[in-house]
Nucleic acid binder design. Structure first.
Lengths: 121, 121, 121, 121
DNA sequence: GTGGTCTAGACCACG
DNA sequence: GTGGTCTAGACCACG
């Protein structure tokens, strides 16, 4: 588990957990079949509440990125490279819709947005 | 006042108000000297609380986009076209930093992000 | 009448009027017997409400800096140089008490305050 | 929490709260990491509304004097002694500019102001 | 009529 | 339990 939690971020902790682990799974950094640490252990290591970890795990399961084997634990699901790319796109496209409507509301064109993006990327 | 409030958005109402009005000011749609509607009237029209409107107005004043004349009302501040462009950039750059770190965390390059942006813009 | 009104100041307009005129009287810039402009005229010149001017004039009269002759207008009161100095001190001492308690609350000594005052005077 | 609220002061309650707590932080009386009382508890103790406390806390956070950890509470930020002195100066310099222009308008020199200050300090 | 402030109480997300 | 937000209504100073 290579996770960085920020307590002062606007993002809820469970959301930070969810995003970072899903990214690791979809980039292949966590291989299919890999066993996630037990909730209690993860909570201790990350110094967050068990409830928080559970919420993140549930969201991962809901999206089919992990699956639970009762009594054994949680495991990274099997995804083809194509599926992984597709899912990665979905993860950012949903956010992009929101981001873009914000940029647009301030009157920026796609080209202007691209120029600014390059500056800060 | 051309404002659309979404109750389903996770953005607080005062934040929506602030963003929409600041965008209108910085795009020149509300000219300098223009008198914003009295907060009580705005609250009634938008069907929100006075305090909610006040909070948005306060943020606008804090950024120097409007100013208050006691007993008279709130007015759009005078900004040069250069300042307006600069401010518009500031408004989205701060958000862009956050957006980009999200895209990056899922392993996308600037070019890939640009391609996806074009699709949905 | 040499008055500068700020609409964006925190100070109420009538207070600005009162302070500036009392300062001019107590510094001898407006001599005793000098006739203040009629309220309506002052209001027009200064582009403020009649009520505002009236409030300032009332405060001046309350402190004995001007007096009203019914049907004739308002006139600067007669004050000896000693009285004028005394009154000037009173005007700032009252405010100083408030200012000092603020400086003190942030832990500054009189010497430190003096050093800072010199920098910005 | 050692706060004294004055209902006779013309300073708003939230401003009094802000000033007193910021002074305590910047003088080192509240150490970094110290947990401020929950806003609801503070509101009850100080017999003011939650929103009033919130407004003061927001200003403290805006200046970086405290930070919020969701679900945990508000904590005093970490500031070096140098930063604390710098911030303390900033807090009174802004006010000093206003105070001085008032003293000056009544014709007092810096030396005269200093003499009067010593009398009442 | 205008803004400034305040209250008491409420519902919600997060942990 | 913690903060975040919101409401409806109130009183006040200023003009």
């Amino acid at each position: 588990m290579n996770i960085a939690i920020s307590n002062t971020s606007d993002k809820p902790i469970y959301q930070q957990l969810f995003e970072q682990i899903s990214a690791q799974i979809l980039k292949g950094e966590l291989e299919s079949g890999y066993s996630l640490p037990p909730i209690r252990q993860a909570a201790t290591e990350l110094r967050v509440s068990i409830i928080t970890v559970k919420k993140a795990w549930e969201e991962l399961e809901r999206l089919g990125l992990i699956y639970t084997v009762t009594g054994k634990g949680c495991f990274v699901a099997e995804l083809s490279p194509d599926e992984m790319l597709q899912r990665r796109k979905e993860m950012i496209l949903k956010q992009m819709m929101i981001d873009i409507s914000y940029y647009k509301s301030f009157g920026f064109t796609i080209e202007e947005v691209y120029e600014l993006l390059k500056e800060v990327y």
